[in-house]
Design a protein around this nucleic acid. Structure first.
Lengths: 206, 206
DNA sequence: CTCCTTTATGACACCCTTGTCATATCCAGT
DNA sequence: ACTGGATATGACAAGGGTGTCATAAAGGAG
């Protein structure tokens, strides 16, 4: 656990340390990150670090928590609580928010990306997909089926998996290219294909 | 470069070392792999290792080469040179071959997966998608468009990207679950959705 | 000014890594 | 049996990492 000593720290020092944490974990995976570099970067003695955090894992978890908080604050005004759009628009919204996040806090996104990359069991256990979020999209699809926007014979789980892998792949690709222009347009194009299908109209009676 | 000394090694020792390499690189990323563990595992002195390979990178590249060779041999009989099926069937075929590869040589697949995970520049440069393969699928789509199987207004690059991310996501997911049953069926289902679209028929005249 | 608690510090022990190199061993040809 | 080149070896240097701990400094209360 983060110690009370850390909490009592004066803001300037606290910020210096947080910046060092952000810097280190946005450049290295958890297992490759080095406390030595962090303390040097923050201009803090090695001993002090261990007075604030019990170990590397501890400071990493704390950092993730801080990031999650900031993300929550940033998205609070953006997320709409009861969507009136189709599941496709909802996915586009998610993509939009992700791009916002990547542009607003690129280092934070980088930290998240590195987390996904990491192979340690400790990280593996945290990366598991949020089942609640998946459930949310399943329900959106079911609602759209009731609305007559999506064919009823389509399996919601399968469809949401499809949309999810596509969105995710787009995000990671564009992140490494560091170019997000036209991304939403591209996603729109892809979703349009999924809606109308690739078959020519005359073949549609299969 | 792999030295001639290594090439001259008697088969038993060579195999022991290769097995150790496979073991180490299937459990650890390149940057986390340890030569110490390798030589201990292979029952070879540390000095000997450096008589065979110039460094870690060298032995890793050699291992990848050996794996590529075996993969080529395994697939030689399976790949059909001039496909008569649609691009979807071709993707299903690729999936099928990947599953075969994962079942036949799970450790090899694991090495490849860890390679993808690795964040070092050295690995980054190797992992870049094969543009030749992408071109191959683009052409398949164009051919299917000529054949009247796929609508002509669909962008081949976009479609192949879609199919690729979906296939890839399925593979990685199932690899971690270590369960490939029903995977082809699932892919078929997804591709069927992509072909006919998610819109109900009465809405198709948009 | 003193005392006591809190905070800061860096040397330390111990672990690991890589790549080198002088030396020992092996083996084949004479 | 001897000899020279090929091969094997592990100690070594140099560097990195983590977490601990005795000690120093600082700061607030009496």
């Amino acid at each position: 656990m983060v110690t009370s000593t850390f909490q009592r720290l004066d803001e300037e020092k606290k910020k210096r340390l947080m910046d060092a944490l952000i810097h280190e974990f946005s450049e290295h995976t958890f297992s490759e990150a080095s406390i030595n570099r962090i303390v040097k970067d923050a201009n803090i003695s090695r001993g002090s670090f261990y007075q604030y955090f019990t170990d590397k894992e501890d400071c990493y978890l704390y950092l993730l928590q801080v990031i999650a908080q900031e993300k929550y604050i940033l998205f609070q005004g953006v997320v709409q609580q009861t969507p009136h759009d189709s599941v496709y628009d909802e996915y586009l919204g998610m993509l939009d928010r992700s791009i916002l996040w990547m542009k607003e806090k690129p280092v934070y996104y980088k930290i998240g990306a590195l987390m996904d990359l990491d192979n340690s069991d400790f990280i593996r256990n945290m990366t598991k997909l949020n089942p609640q979020m998946m459930e949310y999209f399943h329900n959106l699809i079911r609602r759209d089926q009731e609305r007559g926007i999506i064919r009823k014979d389509i399996d919601p789980v399968t469809l949401s998996e499809m949309l999810f892998s596509i969105t995710r792949a787009m995000l990671t690709e564009h992140f490494y290219k560091q170019d997000f222009t036209g991304m939403i347009e591209k996603a729109r194009k892809i979703f349009a294909i999924i809606q109308t299908g690739t078959q020519p109209k005359e073949n549609n009676h299969v």
